Amino acid sequence: MAIQIYILSKLIEGNNYPYELKRQLSEPIPFDEFAGLTESKLYYHFEALTKQGLIEVVEVIREEHRPDKQVFAITEKGRKELPKKIYSLFEKSKAVSEMIIGLATLDYVDRDKVVLILEEKLQKHKERWNHMAAFREMIDVDESRMNFVNFMSDYFDSKAEHTAHWIEETIERIKQGKI
């Protein structure tokens, strides 16, 4: 979904072709490598978006001794669908790292709605974390397994605190207009 959001957001800015979008994503920082985005994956998503009617070919550039370049544009349906895809990304993300493309495309959505989605996500995260902590207290562990249980408890507590911290930080930065 993130790749499709990236493509749609770039096509709102202007018509473009797949190879150029991949090049833009790789310079100056190779985000395409970090995300494992290959040309074949990118072309797959262009094809999927075309089948959904969200983008369309508007020009074919033919150059001698080079493959044809298909130039794409976003359709009206694509413009309407982009915010829905961004909201869905925030709703489905389990960590801030999964929200990066959504955060990069906040200009295409209502920031207050994103904040509400994240506040609800944070509340559910804390409820789940508290439930698990209460459950741990009820477990009767024999002495031989106590070190392992303590290790796992520390790990998951740290991970839960980290996730909560960064969701809170993301909410605050969106509210302050720093993202």
Rank of each mutant, 00 (worst) to 15 (best):
E76H: 02
I86M: 10
Q70A: 07
H165D: 12
E119L: 06
E20S: 13
R79F: 00
D112M: 12
L54I: 00
G14Q: 08
E91D: 04
F31H: 12
E56Y: 01
P28H: 15
D112Y: 06
E56P: 00
V96W: 09
I117F: 02
E98T: 01
R62Q: 04
H131M: 07
L25K: 14
T75K: 05
G177N: 08
A160T: 02
H45W: 14
S9M: 02
F31K: 15
F135C: 03
R128I: 00
M152E: 15
F34R: 07
H162V: 09
M152F: 13
I117W: 07
L103N: 01
Q24S: 15
I171M: 08
M152K: 11
A73R: 07
S144K: 15
Y19I: 15
K113N: 10
K124Q: 11
I12P: 00
S9I: 01
Q176M: 14
I74T: 05
K51D: 10
I179T: 09
K10P: 02
A48D: 15
V60E: 10
A35G: 07
K51R: 14
D107V: 05
S97E: 09
D157T: 05
R173D: 06
M146H: 11
I12D: 12
E47F: 15
R136V: 00
E127L: 05
P67V: 04
E161R: 09
Q24K: 15
L21N: 08
L42E: 09
P83T: 05
F72K: 03
D157F: 02
T38L: 07
Y44V: 14
G14C: 03
D68Q: 08
S158A: 11
D154H: 08
A133R: 13
H131E: 12
L89A: 13
T170S: 01
L82T: 07
I74A: 04
H165Q: 11
L116R: 15
T75V: 03
E120K: 14
K51W: 12
T170H: 02
E59P: 01
K80F: 04
A2N: 15
F72G: 01
L106M: 06
K41C: 10
H162C: 05
A73T: 03
I74G: 01
I12Q: 07
I86N: 11
S26P: 12
K69N: 06
V109T: 11
I7K: 10
E169T: 09
F151M: 13
D142Y: 11
Y17I: 03
L37W: 09
G177K: 07
G177M: 05
H65D: 11
Y44F: 14
N130L: 06
P30C: 03
L122D: 04
M132I: 10
E81F: 01
H125A: 08
E59T: 00
Q70N: 13
L37V: 08
V114K: 12
K178C: 03
F34Y: 10
K94S: 04
A164S: 12
L37N: 10
F72S: 07
I139T: 12
I174F: 02
